[in-house]
Write a protein that binds this DNA or RNA. Structure first.
Length: 584
RNA sequence: CGGGACGUAGCGCAGCUUGGUAGCGCGCAGCGUUCGGGACGCUGAGGUCGCGGGUUCAAAUCCCGCCGUCCCGACCA
């Protein structure tokens, strides 16, 4: 029998009769659903769409969501964080103070009230929590403190897609830590790092922790918790030796050794009519793309930035953005080339104006005699070399890591995988406390900005990620911890009083054993019940029918493994508890 | 925002080319027969054919506009 669960258990104990349950499964998935998780969550009556990227949670899906919520709440509380609830509607002013009103841009839902006051729907709430803490905890003696909430978040996504994976409304746990100094921040961060491991372990997810790009949140050190999934939109690199894993946006590769240039070729202009683009020119000149020098132009808060990478590599815009922080970085728009004296498709670093910042990827330093644009239409140059032919203002890592690149730690081979980001933790430092003038008085009497950290988990995304990781042709395969109900009791012959009675007895015994249980008491054929049980993905199916009754037994099946066994009706409840303990 | 596709009953779709009283499967309701892997028969309910305008004697069908949904792209000079 199950141990007695403490009151704060993540279990949301409940029993339900399928005949009462607000759940109509779909035999066919709506045409709009593309990926497995979306199709199955729809078919299994977990969610229904209201509009693009916005979903209603039906009882089954809501229970799963609630179980994740309970796990997170337990682990957050255990780590010393305190739960609060902040408003979803936020005023524009603090967002303007931190610059995010602009940097979040279109992605933030913005609205106006009747007084024409600008408001937003919170995508995360640093701008709310920071002034809150500053108004309450003004002394170093009050610190540290970590506040969290589990709340609906809003982002007007460029393109909502894949159901719950990229929605415009999603449930998120966001926590914010406030420390006196960097050392304290590291401790708070560490506590969250470990709490997150426990949370994702308990959810049963297959995940990896990777070094990440801070994105529009800002800050320095940060890690992402990535659920492995082929449909994931986020790429991450990992070393074959397991000593390095990072989001591609943040990933570095070991810079190549300087191969040296035996002899500098003269700078020569060549005619390349109608050949913009690396591949076209490389083709024409019969050279590998790696001999080309790619020169991409960015605008960084009004300043022109030219970035140089070998022609066979891509510029990683996020890395450029970090190099130029806090200036907002964006690629040149087509019209800007001519306006600023460049020729799109034929840009090269030679004779760059002084006010243009030239950033070269470190890999550019290892070679010479580049082929690159001649800065006039239909022409390129060969034999371009650093210093003699063009200057480099800064050497940075601005190229995107590729499959097969050497690991920055050990030189091993890097591989690229797909994943869904389900958690992201950041050491923000004073990124928000400074602009919001959120300070405390330190021991020496001076005012100091808080050292902040922030920590997010996408609960609704966990549901989708989990569905993505655990399903088969027949339906979902919920891990026990997240299943809407742990057991379904299927009565195959509702017209036979003996069957109904045995099923009812088992149903109440399982409730007594402290399990979440559904009794499928519907007046439908057994096949329908089996199909629904598989589709919804209850971890354990207990079948009570005329056939088994003759020998006084019930049939048990573990959904995830397909393992079946018979249990005597007199001991079935205990057998189910034991069998369930072996379920994933 | 660019490209593409789609929008007909709750869901999946046909009908549109060639204009003429809107259909199929699933689901739903009733009755009967079934009853351990999405049963069968009979009967029935349910649709402003996304919205607006136009052409026409007549529009789901042709034309224009809008809206919605999904896919691809939105750094590779």
């Amino acid at each position: 029998m199950a141990e007695h669960k403490p009151a704060w258990s993540s279990r949301i104990l409940a029993a339900m009769r399928a005949s009462q349950l607000f759940a109509r499964t779909l035999r066919e998935a709506p045409a709009e659903a593309e990926v497995a998780s979306h199709k199955l969550l729809l078919r299994a009556a977990h969610i229904r769409k209201l509009m693009a990227g916005v979903y209603t949670w039906l009882p089954l899906g809501f229970r799963t969501l609630s179980k994740i919520e309970a796990i997170i709440r337990e682990e957050m509380n255990a780590s010393g964080a305190q739960e609060i609830r902040m408003p979803i509607v936020v005023p524009a002013e603090p967002w303007k103070a931190t610059g995010r009103w602009q940097t979040y841009g279109e992605e933030m839902f913005k609205l106006k009230d009747r007084h024409d006051r600008e408001l937003g729907l919170g995508p995360t709430q640093e701008e709310v929590v920071t002034p809150l803490v500053a108004g309450e905890f003004a002394s170093y003696r009050d610190l540290p403190v970590n506040l969290y909430q589990i709340e609906w978040k809003y982002r007007d996504e460029l393109r909502p897609r894949f159901g719950l994976l990229r929605g415009r409304e999603f449930l998120m746990k966001d926590a914010y830590s406030f420390d006196r100094d960097v050392e304290g921040l590291r401790l708070s961060y560490r506590a969250m790092y470990e709490a997150y491991e426990r949370i994702f372990d308990r959810c049963g997810l297959k995940y990896r922790i990777v070094e990440a790009d801070p994105g529009s949140i800002g800050g320095d050190v940060n890690h992402e918790y990535m659920a492995l999934a082929d449909v994931g939109e986020d790429l991450f690199v990992h070393c074959e030796n397991g000593d390095y894993a990072a989001d591609v946006e943040a990933a570095e590769a070991r810079a190549p050794e300087h191969s040296g240039v035996s002899e500098l070729e003269p700078l020569t202009e060549v005619s390349t009519p109608d050949r913009p683009g690396i591949d076209a020119v490389a083709d024409l000149l019969r050279l590998p793309a790696s001999r080309m020098l790619k020169c991409m132009l960015f605008d960084a808060g009004g300043r022109t930035v030219a970035t140089l990478v070998p022609g066979d590599r891509e510029v990683n815009e996020k890395k450029v953005a970090r190099a130029m922080w806090p200036a907002p970085v964006r690629l040149f728009e087509d019209h800007e080339f001519a306006e600023r004296g460049f020729v799109k498709g034929y840009v090269g670093p030679q004779s760059m104006p002084d006010d243009v910042l030239v950033i070269a990827d470190r890999s550019v330093g290892s070679r010479g005699n580049w082929v690159t644009g001649a800065n006039r239409p239909d022409h390129h140059v060969t034999g371009a070399n650093v210093e003699r032919d063009f200057r480099v203002d800064r050497w940075e890592d601005v190229s995107r890591v590729r499959e097969g690149d050497p690991c920055p730690r050990c030189g091993g081979t890097l591989h690229i995988g797909r994943s869904i980001v389900v958690g992201h933790i950041y050491q923000l430092g004073t990124r928000y406390s400074k602009p919001l003038k959120a300070t405390f008085v330190d021991e020496d009497g001076t005012e100091q900005p808080y050292q902040m950290g922030c920590y997010g988990i996408g609960l609704s995304r966990i549901v989708a990620a989990c569905a993505e990781q655990f399903h088969d042709e027949a339906g979902l395969l919920w891990p026990r911890a997240l299943a809407p109900y742990e057991v379904v009791v299927i009565a195959t012959n509702m017209d036979q009083p003996a069957v109904v009675e045995a099923a009812e007895t088992l149903y109440s015994q399982l409730q007594g054993a402290g399990l979440d249980v559904v009794f499928d008491d519907r007046d439908v054929t057994a096949g329908v019940k089996f199909a629904d049980a598989d589709l919804i993905g209850y971890p354990l199916h207990a079948v009570v029918g005329r056939r088994g009754l003759e020998s006084g037994s019930a049939d048990l099946k573990l959904r995830a493994t397909g393992e079946r066994r018979q249990a005597s009706l007199s001991t079935a409840a205990g057998d189910i508890v034991a069998l369930l303990a072996t379920a994933p």
